[in-house]
Amino acid sequence: MQIVRTTRRYRTINIQAGEHTFTAVDPLPDDLRDALTRIHDRGAH
């Protein structure tokens, strides 16, 4: 459950302004991105 609490604050938000859609992203820190990649890769095998 720690990974859920750690990643909860990182979200992508789409903002619609007229016909335009803008995406606001809070980028993941490198260490968190690496951990998620390792978890994903482990599940793919």
Rank of each mutant, 00 (worst) to 15 (best):
R5C: 04
D30Q: 12
R11E: 04
G18Y: 06
T37V: 12
L36V: 00
T37K: 09
Y10P: 01
T23S: 07
R33I: 00
F22H: 14
T7S: 15
T21D: 08
A17V: 14
I15R: 15
A44D: 05
R42E: 13
E19Q: 14
D31W: 12
Q16T: 12
T23Y: 00
I13Y: 14
H45E: 08
D34L: 09
R38G: 02
G43W: 03
M1S: 10
M1C: 05
R8Y: 06
M1A: 11
I13K: 15
D30F: 02
I39L: 15
D30W: 01
T7D: 02
L36H: 00
T12D: 14
P29F: 00
L28C: 06
T6L: 14
R38H: 06
M1L: 10
F22T: 02
D26H: 10
I3C: 08
D30N: 09
T23F: 02
I39N: 06
T21K: 15
F22N: 07
V4A: 11
D30V: 10
M1P: 02
L36R: 02
H20G: 04
P29Y: 03
T21M: 11
D30P: 05
D41N: 10
T37R: 07
R33Q: 11
T6V: 11
Q2C: 04
H40A: 12
R42H: 15
T7Q: 08
I3Y: 08
P29M: 07
A17D: 14
F22A: 11
H20F: 12
R9E: 08
T7W: 00
R5E: 12
P27C: 06
H40F: 03
Q2I: 09
H45F: 03
T6E: 13
A35N: 01
R38M: 06
N14K: 14
H20I: 03
A35V: 05
A17N: 13
R33F: 06
T23L: 00
I15H: 15
D30C: 04
T23C: 05
T12M: 14
P27K: 04
Q2V: 11
P27F: 02
A44M: 09
I3N: 05
A44K: 13
L32G: 04
Y10D: 00
T21E: 12
A35R: 06
R33M: 07
T7N: 09
L36E: 03
P27D: 06
T21C: 10
L28G: 01
Y10V: 01
A24W: 11
Y10H: 06
I3S: 02
T23W: 04
V4D: 08
A17E: 14
R5G: 14
T21S: 13
A24Y: 13
D26C: 09
R42N: 09
A35H: 08
N14M: 09
V25Y: 10
R8P: 01
A44S: 10
D26K: 15
H20L: 08
R9Q: 11
D41A: 09
R38K: 13
L32D: 03
V25N: 06
L36G: 01
R5M: 11
P27E: 03
Q2W: 08
T7K: 07
R33P: 00
D26E: 13
R38Q: 08
Q16I: 11
H20S: 12
R5T: 12
H45C: 05
Q16K: 15
H45S: 09
L28H: 00
D26G: 02
M1V: 04
A35S: 06
A35F: 02
